[in-house]
Design a protein around this nucleic acid. Structure first.
Lengths: 343, 343
DNA sequence: GCGGGATGTGCATACGTATGCATCCAAGAC
DNA sequence: GTCTTGGATGCATACGTATGCACATCCCGC
């Protein structure tokens, strides 16, 4: 039942009547082995139930084929779906994902980095905006390739993959203006993160191009409660907005819930636009007009960049931005006779 | 920038003027080291930036301190949140999570098991209903402790942690009957999974105790589209139900969306009850009455069981069921003057 | 028939750490 | 003072694999 006898390449070698090296070569793609011996070895391996020990292999080659994936709050649906795609993409490339849950406490971050290095990960993906700058810095200082997913860190010399957040913000501005909105408020993403800042900047610039400026801006901190409070504050004011651009879908749902709880109709009383296009945005309860982050393309760019950096250590870091289209649904009033061609 | 010089315990030993064994002992809790040498070693380690190599350690000890976590579709919010909690709990115990995304294709399953074994994981948690039986069997055949999270496999001799699904189904039956419903339909979870079957059985038994039987039962396959279709079929029929118990929250949201799209009001026209109590169930758009799976307790039971099995290989498997309370919200008509004391 | 390249195989070693064993030293008991 | 005891340390080895090197073998062309 228990006490499984460890089967090693040596056991297989003995049974097959070859050397341990031969066994190793059979399981090493591209090694030189005669078809006949390969067959013998595979047969022996099968009868014994032998599997090459990845850890031992990692010691020799210096490559663990493990990618450290650092995430935080998974309640925002964007990240679970991203993890799923990242996991599949990496598995397809023969890599595996060691998952690290990031807490916010300083001591935890310390341990996180320790563990990341201790397991000899070949590369790191940080998939959460909430990860502090010094964590990324220390990992890359240790010489481990790192890509930030859905977050940038300007001037850090670190690779990142995001959507074109500023441009996305502009698109929202243009779309809302074209829809006749004139009091456009913004419940922003956390301003400590590039993602939050860029989207806000884009909106502001987009409005400025039309000679307008935001009706109000409140930092929603990527948090549901904070965003809902912000929405109530905005609508209770003397001069409520006629549209709210929310920094991500996760908050936008909370905002819509709060607005409806106030007896307001979306979009008749106020338009709401989100950012991300998580699956839930398409669900009947919200039908959220939002900016779509092209998840598959972001994932592909992320693993491509990371693997390239692993293969070529001295490669320069790159910051990739992927265009994010606006998806019109039912939460925002649309321009008259609007078609997709407009943007 | 690149080419990070690998710092080994030997480097530290040389700098500290001690043997490599001494360095090892300093980083091995419970080993016998003089405080003075420990200080020297730690100092040397710090200046060199030394971190013990977990992989090399794993080779010697035979314990990788890695847990394989197998998951599938992360769109159902229950699993991301579970992963988050599982990850934290395991990290707190000094374990780490190697994440495996399960596909459905046969070949992928094969590779999955190979990889799981190759990385010498100390234990396995399967956190998805959709994982085929032979995967779990082959892993446990290999002598690796395994716990199924949110799924049972009766008669398999494998450990599992679930909520008391059958009892939960009964609670729903009693609650709906008390609320005056008489045509209670069920859009069940996938009947290939114990979770889906037990909840359905509980409902049926609960109704039977009152001399009733289900108005209709349709397998929703844990899938949004399938569930939505089922809801439309039910309501379009000649004799529509006055209540629908849906096999999990994920489908329940789809059902509510579908019902509303048909112009029906929940709960005035029809009551809806879910199962899981994912965070979204409390959101304003749904306010779903549902059975709460006590996630923290399930997670604690899972890691406790798994670690016990790792420490004591010959330990008997156990199937743990945790009581799941019904959470009353706004999606189902409540019994007159109902209080929580009733159930 | 012989030389030479190509191909396949075994030997030995290395990766970085943990640990049994022997040794050594200091402290304490008498 | 010696003997004992126990803690601290070093030496050597083992974990399971990959790979450079040397060598054996084979085949082909001349």
């Amino acid at each position: 039942m228990s006490a499984p006898p460890r089967i090693t390449s040596l056991d297989v070698a003995r049974l097959a009547g070859v050397s341990q090296s031969a066994v190793s070569r059979v399981f090493t793609p591209g090694a030189s082995v005669a078809p006949k011996t390969a067959a013998k070895v595979r047969a022996a391996a099968k009868t014994l139930g032998y599997r090459p020990n990845s850890l031992a292999r990692a010691m020799i080659t210096g490559k663990s084929r493990i990618i450290g994936l650092v995430v935080a709050y998974l309640e925002n649906q964007f990240y679970p779906v991203a993890i799923e795609k990242l996991g599949h993409a990496l598995q397809a490339q023969g890599y595996h994902v060691l998952l690290f849950m990031a807490s916010n406490t300083e001591g935890e971050m310390e341990r996180l980095v320790e563990d990341l290095l201790a397991y000899q990960v070949d590369g790191i993906i940080t998939a959460s905006v909430a990860i502090s700058n010094d964590v990324t810095r220390r990992c890359s200082d240790a010489g481990i390739p790192l890509v930030m997913f859905n977050r940038g860190q300007p001037g850090s010399g670190l690779s990142s993959v995001t959507s074109a957040n500023a441009l996305g913000g502009r698109k929202v501005a243009q779309f809302l203006l074209a829809g006749g909105h004139r009091r456009i408020a913004h419940i922003s993403g956390w301003q400590g993160a590039s993602t939050g800042r860029d989207r806000a900047r884009g909106l502001i610039e987009g409005l400025a191009e039309a000679g307008q400026q935001p009706h109000a801006i409140i930092d929603g901190m990527f948090d549901r409660d904070t965003a809902a409070d912000a929405a109530r504050t905005l609508m209770d004011g003397a001069d409520p907005p006629d549209a709210i651009f929310v920094g991500n879908d996760h908050m936008a749902f909370a905002v819509m819930d709060a607005l409806r709880a106030m007896g307001l109709d979306v979009p008749r009383d106020v338009s709401v636009v989100g950012y991300d296009d998580v699956p839930m945005a398409a669900w009947g309860a919200y039908r959220l007009t939002t900016v779509r982050q092209p998840l598959m393309r972001m994932v592909e760019a992320t693993v491509e960049t990371l693997l390239a950096q692993i293969d070529t250590p001295d490669r320069a870091a790159q910051s990739i931005e992927i265009d994010a289209p606006l998806i019109r649904r039912a939460s925002a009033r649309c321009p008259e006779g609007d078609t997709d061609a407009g943007l």
